[in-house]
């Protein structure tokens, strides 16, 4: 009885009185976001620099003039020169090459640990926020326990138990950041799950899984994206700290944190040994942070309207 008529039999629908949006170009949200981001100079520059750093990390072996452990005993602790732009270390290794080769280590640890925290933390936050009640209580109290530990101390404890090495550094940093993602996600989900459009989807029969993946997560995503960017900065820093303490990658593998630690001993004779790896850390962390700030502005709906209004 509710069989709809075929399109041909449909009586001509009354023409809508209001003008339909006509010429407005169909632009997906993410393109709009990129457009707004491009108009935020700080965030745009940060993004470009980060892309460059990632490219350097990917093509490190082609870009580095020397191998990571090519020693030249005649060139120990040489100041920066045309041959060695960042100088050499106590074994006569080219600091410039090692900074380039260390980028891969630092970024890999940073990206993988944040990816781990993002996946696990977001999942926990989604479940806790969406289902509430005892699921929320159990999961978030567990997160509180993790969160109560000072981050670096917890990482050191994990590495101490499982042994030093890049894989364990990734795991340690990842676990430390899980509660942060869980909290950010939960807070955002708590707001979104009460939205009418979530109830509307439920009213047409959508399953919990569909509600979570198609409606709740996409709408709860902006704070998570910002948190990811900020966490990447901290993760790079944490990797440097763990390496500095000898709990991350091992010598003689190049790593910014390790170089910083080794260069510290020569800071009076050869400033370049510690300064250039340190600079690499600063630039990377700063760019992630600034990009995070920019994303936060762009993804905030109120800011977004303001910016779009002033720009057009």
């Amino acid at each position: 009885m509710t069989q709809l008529p075929t399109p041909g039999a449909t009586p001509a629908a009354p023409p809508p009185a209001e003008p339909l949006p006509t010429a407005a170009p169909v632009r997906p949200r993410w393109r709009e976001t990129l457009g707004l981001l491009a108009r935020n100079p700080t965030a745009a520059v940060s993004a470009v620099v980060l892309v460059l750093i990632v490219l350097v990390a990917v093509f490190d072996e082609t870009l580095a003039p020397d191998g990571p452990n090519e020693q030249d005993p005649s060139l120990q602790l040489q100041p920066p020169s045309w041959a060695h732009p960042f100088g050499t270390d106590e074994f006569g290794r080219d600091v410039f090459s090692r900074v380039i080769l260390g980028a891969a280590t630092s970024l890999r640890v940073g990206f993988l640990s944040v990816a781990f925290a993002l996946v696990v933390g977001t999942l926990i936050g989604l479940l806790a926020g969406f289902y509430g009640t005892w699921v929320d209580d159990v999961l978030m109290r567990l997160m509180d326990v993790l969160f109560a530990f000072p981050a670096v101390l917890l990482a050191i404890a994990i590495v101490a138990i499982r042994g030093a090495g890049p894989a364990n550094a990734i795991l340690a940093i990842g676990i430390v950041y899980v509660p942060i993602f869980a909290r950010v996600t939960r807070a955002s989900v708590l707001g979104v799950r009460e939205e009418v459009y979530v109830r509307a989807s439920r009213s047409v029969g959508a399953s919990d899984w569909r509600l979570i993946t198609r409606h709740v997560l996409p709408n709860a995503a902006p704070p998570i994206i910002v948190q990811t960017s900020v966490s990447l900065a901290f993760a790079v820093l944490a990797e440097a700290a763990l390496s500095f303490l000898g709990l991350g990658p091992r010598r003689p593998d190049p790593s910014w944190g390790l170089m910083l630690a080794d260069g510290r001993g020569f800071i009076e004779q050869a400033w370049w040994y510690a300064v250039f790896p340190g600079l690499a850390i600063v630039v990377t962390v700063l760019c992630f942070n600034l990009l995070g700030d920019g994303l936060r502005d762009v993804l905030d709906p109120r800011q977004r309207t303001l910016m779009a209004g002033s720009g057009r």
Binding site: R199, V204, R214
Partner: peptide
């Protein structure tokens, strides 16, 4: 059965600005 009910019974909500997912 509940899913079939959701097919056979629809709902139109009060606020059309809140009842449509802005990202879809």
């Amino acid at each position: 059965q509940l899913r079939e009910l959701r097919r056979r019974a629809g709902m139109v909500f009060q606020d059309p600005f809140a009842s449509l997912d802005p990202r879809r």
